[in-house]
């Protein structure tokens, strides 16, 4: 088991009332699998993902990465060395080229990265379908699908075992959506990564190894 959430609670305080987004949520994830978390808008799936990626902290409960509390690892350290995050709106640095965007996490991580970082970055981009001529363009000159591929390459750049993605195909057409899902499946099955994707799409959920349903703050297995 690479990642485990135990009894997570997350709420908003509304006067004397607590509005729970996640209530006593427990879930675990393994390497080599592609997971999806399904849910309606406002169901708390993005909140769950932000907790799993240490962009936010729960009010109670623990998240264990390789059996170690991520609080102990340190949120910043955890994000730097153990998790790759992919956002719906790509979140690339618009003034930098695709390859420069991929190079950024390589200089931030403490994981071992090859000395010739630029070659590695070009290879990663090539692997997910961005050729060199496009890799040298500033990212705002790329299509949405291409930008999302750059974001995936960036998430992989630090050689992490865990990839979390928040609605990664939300802004893409169906054809591009499938290409991105295929990449995730490949990362899980061929490269032994743990890929967790938050989505509201049943089609994507059907392609995952395991799917969870988040409803009213409660996470259940989606049979």
């Amino acid at each position: 088991m690479i990642l485990e959430a135990r009894d997570l609670n997350y709420y908003y305080q509304d006067g004397d009332m607590r509005r729970y987004i996640l209530k006593d949520t427990s879930v675990s994830f393994e390497k080599g699998k592609f997971y999806t978390i399904l849910g309606q808008s406002g169901s708390g799936k993005t909140t769950l993902l932000s907790l799993l990626s240490a962009l936010d902290s729960p009010h109670s409960g623990t998240i264990l990465f390789n059996d170690q509390d991520i609080k102990q690892i340190g949120y910043e350290n955890y994000r730097r060395n153990h998790v790759g995050i992919i956002f719906q709106s790509y979140n690339l640095i618009p003034t930098f080229t695709a390859v420069e965007n991929v190079l950024i996490p390589m200089s931030i991580t403490e994981n071992e990265v090859p000395e010739d970082q630029k070659t590695v970055a070009y290879n990663l981009l090539d692997y997910i379908g961005i050729v060199k001529s496009k890799a040298d363009r500033t990212v705002n000159k790329l299509s949405g699908g291409e930008q999302q591929r750059v974001a995936i390459a960036r998430a992989l750049a630090t050689n992490v075992e865990l990839i979390v993605a928040d609605e990664p195909t939300g802004n893409l057409d169906e054809e591009m959506e499938q290409e991105i899902i295929d990449i995730f499946k490949r990362l899980a099955h061929e490269h032994n990564k743990c890929v967790i994707v938050v989505t509201h799409s049943n089609e994507i959920a059907l392609q995952s190894d395991q799917s969870f349903l988040l409803r009213k703050g409660v996470l259940t297995a989606n049979e």
Partner: peptide
């Protein structure tokens, strides 16, 4: 702001 948020999300101090 978004750019700075990206650096922080990547674990930059």
């Amino acid at each position: 702001k978004r750019e700075l948020g990206i650096y922080l999300s990547l674990g930059e101090s």
